[in-house]
């Protein structure tokens, strides 16, 4: 198995408060990792660090065998290979759905517009939103916006995807559609993914591995099934109980 991402001894503090402490893990190609843990445990900070949106004080991130030198320029190049979807969707309100999707591929990757549009349509079809390419984000529901946000990230042909609580602001009936898309990505496309979520059933279904975080530390790094059925630490046990799992 090829290692896509490796994190070693990552430390981050914010205004002298430690947020992440000695984080170590790696992800193989095609692997799906879920980050679980109580709120404030550092899950979102960790996943944002992996996309260069948060700075870190020490440690290394290695991507495809190459150590990342953390500066703006390098992260900007890397982000084309790392797709990220956020809790608040954050489609660009001034652009149509299609323009949201093709902005990165045409402007950043300088790919031909026709090719990108064709690809975008194929992706839109996959998420059942082909009819909405000329709509503006304001005309879409939360679930639809989030599906478009996933398409926007996929259009860049990322090598792996980061999902940060992508269903947390959605109405319950919208959640399933979004989760199904992520599951298809795992099952059919073999996408490498890191997922921060509070949906325990979903996490159990997709996770090859679970990283359990508390107070900025990784307390458990275990295969998915094992984590849910036999958590090793009492903290994780309590956490699963508190989530009614």
């Amino acid at each position: 198995m090829t290692e896509v991402l490796k994190v070693e001894h990552l430390d981050k503090s914010y205004q002298k408060q430690p947020v992440l402490h000695d984080i170590n893990f790696s992800i193989a190609k095609g692997e799906v990792v879920t980050l679980l843990g109580p709120s404030g445990s550092g899950k979102s900070t960790l996943i944002r660090t992996l996309n260069g949106l948060e700075k870190y004080q020490s440690g290394t991130i290695t991507f495809n065998g190459k150590k990342v030198v953390p500066n703006d320029k390098n992260w900007q190049t890397l982000r084309q290979k790392i797709g990220m979807v956020f809790q608040s969707y954050d489609l660009f309100p001034n652009l149509t759905v299609m323009d949201n999707i093709i902005l990165g591929p045409t402007k950043v990757q300088k790919r031909a517009k026709e090719e990108v549009i064709a690809q975008a349509r194929a992706l839109l079809k996959k998420v059942d939103l082909l009819d909405y390419e000329d709509s503006y984000p304001r005309q879409l529901s939360g679930g639809q916006k989030q599906r478009i946000a996933i398409v926007r990230a996929l259009a860049l042909h990322p090598e792996f995807m980061l999902f940060d609580e992508v269903t947390a602001s959605l109405d319950p009936e919208m959640v399933r559609g979004v989760l199904n898309i992520i599951r298809d990505l795992a099952d059919q496309d073999d996408m490498t993914m890191i997922i921060v979520t509070h949906e325990m059933d979903f996490a159990k279904q997709v996770a090859d591995r679970v990283l359990f975080l508390q107070d900025g530390k990784i307390l458990e790094d275990t295969p998915g099934n094992q984590f849910f059925d036999h958590p090793q630490t009492t903290r994780a046990k309590e956490f699963l109980e508190s989530m009614n799992f």
Binding site: G52, M84, F86, F92, G104, A153, L156
Partner: peptide, 8 residues
């Protein structure tokens, strides 16, 4: 951030 995330 979402602009940065698509590599702008």
């Amino acid at each position: 951030e979402s602009g940065k995330a698509i590599g702008l």
